[in-house]
Design a protein around this nucleic acid. Structure first.
Length: 160
DNA sequence: ATGACTTACATCG
DNA sequence: CGATGTAAGTCAT
């Protein structure tokens, strides 16, 4: 099944079976909204409310095991907080895995629910995003994270 | 601003 | 399978 929610000038698309979410992505090619599990959460989220997507069920069976660990860890990052790619790599036990973490984020099949927008560079600059760094900044701004001179420097936004 | 560097994954023969 | 190319990064020049 496929659900859709209008956001700005495009749509968040959610593929699911029963209550299990298979994939979440962005598209411009969509006609109208359709229900999906957790739709109310997404509506609130884009209204700027502090939403916890932690109870949504996502299907990680098909992703490689290290990516799975990365996504599961990324899900734990609290609303309004950020961590670095290296920080996640260190959690995995090897700080040199930063680029692997980046790869995992690039192919994140669960946009927003796996909050890859909360993963930034270790020097506080925003880093890349599959939908462009402007969208990443938009999401961080929505969560109240202050970006000054293209950087997140204030310690209060950093997780750990 | 540029280059060297590590690692896992996807793709292809 | 093994070789190759790729990547949302990081650190020292």
């Amino acid at each position: 099944m496929k659900g859709a929610l209008r956001v700005n000038n495009g749509f968040i698309m959610v593929e699911y079976e029963k209550s299990v979410i298979k994939r979440i992505y962005w598209t411009y090619k969509c006609e109208e909204e359709k229900d999906f599990p957790g739709k109310e959460l997404f509506i609130d989220y884009f209204l700027g409310k502090k939403v916890d997507f932690g109870d949504l069920i996502i299907d990680l069976k098909r992703v490689p095991s290290i990516f799975k660990k990365i996504y599961e860890f990324t899900r734990e990052i609290p609303y309004g907080k950020v961590i670095s790619y290296k920080g996640i790599a260190e959690f995995l036990g090897n700080s040199k895995l930063q680029r692997v973490v980046g790869n995992a984020m690039k192919s994140n099949p669960f946009l927003i629910v796996v909050p890859c927008h909360r993963v930034v560079r270790s020097n506080g600059s925003i880093g890349n995003f599959s939908l462009g760094s402007e969208f990443k900044k938009y999401l961080l701004n929505l969560e109240g994270v202050k970006i000054e001179n293209e950087k997140i420097s204030c310690l209060r936004y950093w997780w750990h």
